[in-house]
């Protein structure tokens, strides 16, 4: 810390934004509301991407056929957060990860739960090795990523 402290000018910037979902994300979120995870297929490279996209990031063509993807998959990686951060919408500590949903060609980011998350050793033990996970839904859904409560271990 510096030896001498000077006056600081407190200043808050409060800027509300309204982000457009557009037709594709809107349909994806409608799917969540209905308890479905929707992806779509690129007509050129044939990858199934989830969440559904407007265009294939690699082929730069409009995405094609809609696909209701599996609600189960393989946990690819995870991390446990113990500190609050801006934009956080869950209680601490929480575990987030990348999930490779069956039949898709990318990883899907979401929360992991349904097990003891207060203790890192318990989390490590539970998520060790190749873990199969499946979506657990909220009863009340509003068309939002957190309509899926979390992914729980499926085996």
């Amino acid at each position: 810390m510096p030896d001498k402290h000077f006056h600081t000018k407190k200043h808050d910037v409060w800027l509300p934004y309204r982000f457009s979902a557009g037709p594709v994300f809107e349909r994806f979120f409608e799917g969540l509301k209905a308890g479905k995870i929707l992806g779509n297929r690129c007509p050129r490279c044939e990858r199934v991407l989830v969440p559904a996209r407007t265009f294939c990031p690699r082929c730069y063509v409009d995405m094609g056929q809609w696909v209701e993807v599996s609600q189960e998959g393989r946990l690819v990686t995870w991390t446990m957060s113990t500190e609050p951060f801006f934009g956080m919408r869950t209680d601490l500590p929480y575990v987030a990860g990348l999930i490779h949903l069956d039949g898709t060609n990318c990883n899907f980011m979401h929360l992991l739960g349904g097990f003891e998350t207060m203790d890192i050793e318990a989390v490590r033990e539970r998520l060790k090795g190749s873990v199969r996970v499946r979506a657990v839904w909220r009863e009340e859904r509003e068309g939002d990523m957190l309509d899926i409560k979390y992914f729980e271990a499926a085996d």
Binding site: F19, A21, T79, S81, E83, R89, A96, L98
Partner: peptide, 19 residues
């Protein structure tokens, strides 16, 4: 991170690099 799919889960930079 964009607000729809990533921001709720990334825990800022440390979360991404920990993954």
């Amino acid at each position: 991170a964009e607000p729809f799919f990533f921001r709720p889960f990334t825990s800022g930079a440390p979360g991404i690099f920990s993954m």
